[in-house]
Design a protein around this nucleic acid. Structure first.
Lengths: 196, 196
DNA sequence: CAGCTGACAGATTTCAATATCTGTCATTCC
DNA sequence: GGAATGACAGATATTGAAATCTGTCAGCTG
């Protein structure tokens, strides 16, 4: 059959939006640009997303969800030692962020701007990650590896204490020589604290 | 004797600069404004500071030095228990930052901008604070309260892990309900880790 | 008729002319 | 004579008019 125009879906729009953001940056990426990239009028984009802000929010959520999903595997490996899983989870988060920031700094900076624009989805993302951490710490309490009165409080503390190694605001420092060692020192201290 | 025009000193210029920054903000504060506030020509200001950047850097350093000096007292109290001093030092840093940010948010935001403009003095400031922390932790190792292979590494880890409670970038969150509790949870975890 | 288009009003951004500022230095003032 | 001034050139910031964008919707198209 002859090549037919693919249907305009939300997913295709999000892909085009990411591409436009990569090319133009957050300040200059317009809905008209996205429509042009798809070969449709900008009115069609508004059929799928009520506002430009909603479109940007959706593309931001998509990006954050990828990170959360990549880490959820470690949470699910309930046969493995909780302390090792905790270390792997934190190292995985740091490595993923550092890799993204290093591989395409401009796109990373763009998503950092989008994230500050859409506090709501970021907040949900952080809640999701803290939940994952809570499950690993709870597993450690169950095996006796960790001691804590409240796994959620401890998970929040661990997540916040490692903020320097996952908060995009610190991205510049992730490539500096001492960063990996500093990360390990913080994790060691926190793990020792959890062992109680 | 009759009231005479006070001599134009670097200190008077720094005071006027802070006032101009408070009034106009970092983007609109000019050297001409500072000179006008002092009733002199802007050429006279350039006699004391080579460039506008040097003037801004000096006023930034002055501000950072006040924080470091306020905390140095706790380091000097060598007769007190190191764990308590560590907790007091961290709580003092958090309280001082939170108070400044709450009392005059615009001036605080202004100094935050200046700080990012002048990485060098900030870097020195952070080194100074980490040194203070190192001395407290070393005291704890000496009394047997703390266990660590390297007090400087541990001090760096403690300082970075508490970044959310002193880095100006997080100022908005310091006034939120849970902040004090989250701070205490992080400090408890870190202190437990230091006890080893 | 479900989805797409493009003209439109109001909001936002761009751009170039204009004004202000930075940093220098020959001259003035005490 | 040491400190201060103010005119100046080049750099930076402000402003307002013109261009573009956002979001809507009546009508087109397959």
């Amino acid at each position: 059959m002859a090549p037919t125009t693919p249907t305009l879906t939300a997913e295709r729009i999000l892909e085009a939006t990411e591409e436009v953001l990569r090319r133009h940056g957050p300040a200059k990426a317009t809905v008209v640009d996205v429509a042009r990239a798809l070969g449709v009028s900008h009115g069609s984009v508004y059929r799928h997303f009520r506002t430009k802000a909603a479109l940007r929010e959706a593309v931001t959520q998509r990006w954050l969800d990828r990170t959360a999903e990549a880490l959820s595997g470690i949470v699910a490996e309930t046969d493995r030692d909780p302390e090792t899983r905790l270390r792997d989870w934190l190292a995985g988060l740091f490595a993923a962020k550092r890799r993204k920031a290093g591989a395409d700094p401009e796109l990373f900076a763009t998503y950092s701007v989008l994230a500050t624009e859409h506090g709501g989805v970021v907040s949900d993302h952080l809640t999701e990650l803290t939940e994952q951490l809570t499950r690993i710490i709870q597993a450690g309490v169950d095996t006796g590896a960790f001691t804590t009165a409240d796994p959620l409080t401890s998970a929040t503390a661990v997540f916040q204490a490692t903020g320097r190694f996952h908060d995009p605001g610190y991205a510049k420092e992730w490539e500096q020589p001492g960063a990996q060692g500093e990360f390990e020192a913080v994790v060691d201290l926190l793990v020792r604290g959890l062992r109680g």
